[in-house]
């Protein structure tokens, strides 16, 4: 038996704004610890990991581990119908994920479970020279600034500053932010702006974003709830100079 209840739909909704932009299908893995998913996009450019601990839910029951395969667009269509003060209940029957919104009315949606084409990828452990946190809004604004000039962004960090830079046909933009964190090395890599923008659709998950950057290494971007009961993490392959 699987049953999970949340006092509002916002964490699921904001997570799947990003997840449904990146992958077509996902497998939720549930056990007594909580609900997780790992997914790699078709182009193998972005990997994502969502971890929602059992303690995050108002009620959480999972007698035995389950694998719940769903189409992310179909799930997002249902989540978009939620109201921010609705209670959300997730459960399963034979062949369906059942999503119930309890507010003014009780609304029950079923999504057919699907066969997965691929087994979910296991997240790789990558050793980084840097890790630091910056405000989510600042990062999102920087990406929107860069969008004026280019489809790619150079992200770099040193002991003092985080920098985002882009150059285009008609000019360039340079953003600097004193991060105030303990970063001992310098690192810089270039990334697709479109791919970063997809991740930042999860704009209500966390007030801060933790970034790990290396030199021509993937970007790790992590959104964590203050309570540490939820994390949405992305890994993005860099663009490198030919």
């Amino acid at each position: 038996m699987f049953k999970a209840e949340l006092s509002n739909p916002n964490i699921l909704k904001t997570s799947f704004e990003a997840i449904s932009a990146i992958v077509d299908e996902i497998q939720f893995q549930t056990d007594s610890e909580g609900l997780r998913l790992d997914a790699l996009d078709r182009g193998h450019i972005t990997f994502l990991h969502l971890d929602l601990k059992a303690s995050l839910f108002d009620e959480y029951i999972c007698d035995e581990p389950e694998k719940i395969n769903i189409d992310t667009d179909e799930f997002m269509k249902v989540l978009k119908r939620s109201k921010s003060d609705d209670r959300v209940l997730l459960s399963l029957d034979e062949g369906n994920l059942i999503i119930t919104f309890e507010g003014q009315a009780k609304r029950t949606f079923k999504i057919r479970l699907i066969d997965m084409e691929y087994e979910p990828a296991t997240p790789p452990a990558i050793e980084y020279p840097t890790e630091f946190s910056i405000p989510f809004d600042l990062f999102k604004n920087s990406i929107n600034d860069i969008d004026i000039y280019s489809d790619k962004v150079s992200l770099s960090v040193d002991s003092e500053k985080f920098k985002a830079f882009a150059t285009g046909e008609f000019g360039e933009v340079n953003i600097e932010f004193i991060h105030g964190e303990s970063v001992k090395e310098e690192a810089s890599s270039v990334f697709s702006l479109e791919k970063i923008s997809e991740m930042l659709k999860a704009d209500k998950f966390s007030d801060n974003v933790t970034l790990s950057i290396g030199n021509d290494m993937p970007l790790t971007l992590s959104l964590k709830m203050i309570s540490e009961e939820g994390e949405l993490r992305f890994l993005l392959a860099p663009r490198i100079e030919n």
């Binding site: 193998h44 450019i45 972005t46 990997f47 990828a121 296991t122 790619k152 392959a237 663009r239 490198i240």
Partner: peptide, 14 residues
């Protein structure tokens, strides 16, 4: 010129 890389080398199994 820049080219988009993939994550394949990070997901290689031992």
């Amino acid at each position: 010129q820049y080219k988009q890389t993939t994550l394949d080398s990070y997901f290689k199994k031992d």
